[in-house]
Simulated scan of single mutants.
Amino acid sequence: MSKRIIHSYARGVHSIDIPDDPGQSVVAIPEPSQELFDRALVGWERFTSVAEKPSDG
């Protein structure tokens, strides 16, 4: 059984089916993977290398 949500401002737009217990479709990950940390580090290093540095004067 699922609930159907239709907002009044969304007439003509398809509705969304959600389970009665929203938690049943959520899967918790105990901790981020090493791959995710590595990708985040690469992205952070790329960001900081192109970020504008403040001037000393």
Rank of each mutant, 00 (worst) to 15 (best):
K3F: 03
S8E: 12
Q24L: 02
P54R: 10
R46F: 04
P19R: 02
I18V: 15
G43S: 12
S8H: 09
G23F: 00
V26G: 00
P32C: 06
Y9C: 10
I29Q: 09
V13T: 13
D20G: 01
K53D: 04
S8K: 10
W44S: 05
R39M: 08
P22L: 00
S55I: 05
Y9S: 15
T48F: 15
I16H: 09
E31G: 08
S2E: 09
E35Y: 11
S49D: 09
E31D: 13
S33K: 06
R46G: 02
I16F: 12
Y9V: 14
V13S: 12
F47L: 14
F37N: 12
L36P: 00
I29R: 10
M1Q: 13
R11M: 15
P19D: 11
V13W: 10
S2M: 06
H7E: 15
A40R: 08
K3W: 09
F47S: 04
K3E: 08
H7N: 13
V42F: 08
D20W: 01
K53E: 11
V13D: 00
I5E: 03
H7L: 14
E52T: 14
V50N: 04
S55V: 10
W44A: 15
E45Y: 06
R39N: 13
H14W: 03
R39Q: 15
S25N: 01
G43K: 11
D17I: 01
S2C: 10
